[in-house]
Design a binder for these strands. Structure first.
Lengths: 201, 201
DNA sequence: CGTCTATTTGAATGTACTCAAAAGCGGTGG
DNA sequence: CCACCGCTTTTGAGTACATTCAAATAGACG
């Protein structure tokens, strides 16, 4: 592991827990660097996920296919996010989800066995992942709540204000899927919004 | 803490991690027992959640109110589930959710400070909560996915097979809310299903 | 410039919601 | 034991939000 690649990861860790230099070195020693090309999969449905994957650069979409073969975006990943299928990784069972890189993507990976070992030797790292998981869970709960109480337009407008970077970097039809609407309907929502803004001037 | 109340909790813990007798005693020493009556709130919106709450008996609904004042059920809790608003507990900020007992409910509670202390002194307990959180997160992800790819009827039928105990113990209008449909529409789904079954005979 | 993919449009359709009212159900008191 | 009350569930008509399908347009990339 070169230290420069792990810089943002270490910053994330330091923000949550305090590690000594040796402990940071131990963490770094377990990380493997890897680069995926545009279109490649970090996880494919049916695989058993062997790694936790941290994004250094690039972008990733996580999606699954329903019975009719329609794609549904579960989440987007960009720099300094962790991606994968936690269900598969945690239980070492075949994944339901796919994680595909939408451009050249550099990652750091931590294997299942090394994760276990780190948890044993370094409870502070366990704490780091607990905090990560807490945040992810809270976001997930919020998303459920919003899907139930907001209209498609409201969800889109909220997404615009909360994740403007995502709007720029991911195609609209994927954002539609993430929000749980068809690409056609999202398009008509955008027209509606644009029309209203025009009327104001 | 009387040991009999903590029996199911200890069983849950033992299933996940191995504790020595002293470690179990340490955990028990932090737990406070409390009984809520029908209609009482474990958490109210606006409160800062000071405890993690484990259900020994009874039942609880967790819900939030949207802008129009409509209730949305976030989750149901029965024996041996943990309830509350993790967002509020973890960050010690005011809760968005309410957790209300629907009958006499006995609980065990672990304060924020004691939780922190346990995490420090007993990493295995931290592991236990990490595993708990993993399961909760995975369920939450599944729920999002299902809300996007299944019809209301399919979600209801899946709920029937996965949580028959819940169907018996919670009123239909709450289940409707949990599934993200109106009580009227769930009623019409049930009629549909009943009609089809009648036709088969 | 042509090809491939993403976005937009519009009409017809469907799934789920709103509102209002009736029916069912369980408990309580006269 | 029945009548009444409050709460839950059912019904039905009208409506709205969102989907499907088909086709046109716009953008991106080699």
């Amino acid at each position: 592991m070169q230290a420069d690649q792990a810089k943002t990861l270490l910053e994330d860790v330091r923000r949550a827990v305090k590690l000594t230099a040796e402990e940071e070195a131990m963490l770094l020693s377990k990380l493997r660097s890897r680069t995926y090309l545009k279109g490649q999969y970090i996880v494919q449905e049916g695989d058993i996920v062997r790694f936790q994957t941290y994004l250094v650069s690039g972008k990733v979409r996580t999606f699954y296919l329903d019975r009719e073969g329609n794609e549904h975006i579960v989440s987007f990943g960009i720099e300094h996010w962790w991606v994968g299928d936690l269900c598969s990784f945690a239980s070492q069972i075949p994944a339901d989800f796919n994680a595909q890189c939408l451009e050249k993507t550099e990652v750091l990976q931590l294997s299942y066995a090394d994760t276990e070992q780190l948890y044993e030797e370094l409870p502070k790292i366990e704490r780091f992942f607990l905090l990560l998981l807490q945040r992810a869970y809270i976001k997930s709960q919020k998303r459920i709540v919003r899907n139930h109480s907001l209209t498609a337009r409201e969800r889109y407008e909220l997404f615009l204000t909360e994740h403007p970077e995502m709007v720029e970097r991911f195609p609209q039809y994927m954002i539609a899927s993430y929000l749980g609407v068809t690409k056609e309907f999202l398009s008509s929502i955008r027209r509606q919004i644009a029309d209203e803004e025009k009327k104001l001037n």
